[in-house]
């Protein structure tokens, strides 16, 4: 690069100039991101520590195996790959906006900023769907009082323990009270004939439940929900604030503030933040979905 020639012999640290050839704003943004990396790092490392400290953890391939409008198809990793690609694509449009900014091309910056904002909103929508799916999804789990019950994935309940063998399910059904049996039966009659489960007797319910091929598991560590919602929520909050920042930057671009100023450095700084959000997702993706 041609910059190498300028670097030669420049006394970077002697004062009167930035040793980084960067404005204080950019330097501050970098160190802020480093600091934020420690916030996220602390979250993810806490999660890792807890995962190391328990014997089982929820298997991500079972927890995250659905896709919008795909019904009960088993599609492990599919939806989260979509989310990852959305974020990578929006990162590309962001870096293209920064590039157009260097060329002082206002129209180009506007175009790519709009695309980036759309990408961010798409990612947030995906996350909203995934959260809703987990919070309202019902999975049959063995409670520690020996009965079966339908449980959602929340910060207070985790139905993703080890799988129960069939004999254990049969035994547990015998001790399960009526209302729990009814709610289990209600989750099973998708698409088929509708039974009035509340009116059925316990024996009929058990027969009905056993006739359909049900999967049940032990409850898993409750900490799972907290960490998942906590960390993806904190990341989602960053995406949200990134979208807000990008909207502000888009407005300022349209108003011609950066043309007046003579440079598009603000876009560059917003870009740094946006890429950082992408970077964090790379690690969230690794820690929650892949391993």
């Amino acid at each position: 690069m041609s910059t190498a020639a300028v670097q030669q012999g420049t006394k970077w640290w002697s004062g009167g100039r930035s040793p980084f050839n960067a404005s204080y704003g950019k330097v501050m943004m970098w160190y802020f991101l480093m600091s934020d990396a420690f916030t996220f790092g602390a979250f993810l490392i806490s999660y890792g520590t807890i995962r190391f400290s328990v014997n089982n953890w929820a298997d991500p391939n079972h927890v995250f195996n659905s896709f919008p409008f795909a019904g009960h198809m088993n599609l492990p990793l599919a939806f989260v790959s979509l989310m990852t690609f959305i974020l990578i694509a929006s990162s590309v449009t962001m870096v293209l906006a920064v590039h157009e900014g260097h060329n002082m091309n206002r129209k180009g910056v506007e175009k790519y900023m709009i695309l980036t904002i759309i990408g961010g909103l798409a990612f947030l929508s995906c996350q909203a769907w995934e959260w809703t799916h987990l919070l309202t999804g019902e999975h049959i789990a063995l409670l520690s009082d020996g009965t079966l019950s339908v449980l959602p994935t929340t910060v207070k309940a985790n139905p993703w323990g080890t799988a129960l063998p069939h004999e254990a399910i049969a035994a547990a059904l015998q001790t399960t009270p009526h209302d729990q049996l009814a709610s289990i039966a209600a989750t099973l009659q998708h698409g088929g004939e509708v039974h009035n489960v509340a009116a059925m007797s316990n024996a009929d319910l058990i027969k009905f439940i056993e006739s359909s091929d049900i999967h049940a598991s032990n409850t898993g560590p409750i900490a799972f929900g907290g960490y998942f919602f906590g960390i993806t929520g904190f990341h989602g909050f960053h995406v949200f604030s990134g979208v807000v920042i990008n909207i502000v930057m888009l407005t300022k671009t349209r108003l011609g503030h950066f043309d007046e100023r003579g440079h598009y450095e603000m876009i560059e700084k917003a870009g740094l933040y946006w890429h950082f959000v992408d970077l964090v997702w790379v690690f969230v993706f690794l820690c929650f979905y892949l391993i």
């Binding site: 006394k11 640290w13 002697s14 004062g15 009167g16 930035s18 040793p19 980084f20 960067a22 404005s23 204080y24 330097v27 501050m28 160190y31 802020f32 600091s35």
Partner: peptide, 19 residues
């Protein structure tokens, strides 16, 4: 505060004030 202190010390030293 900390971000300010760091970037001030790095970027704003007067001429000749090497680290």
């Amino acid at each position: 505060g900390g971000l300010n202190y760091i970037s001030t010390i790095l970027n704003m030293r007067t001429k000749g004030m090497s680290m």
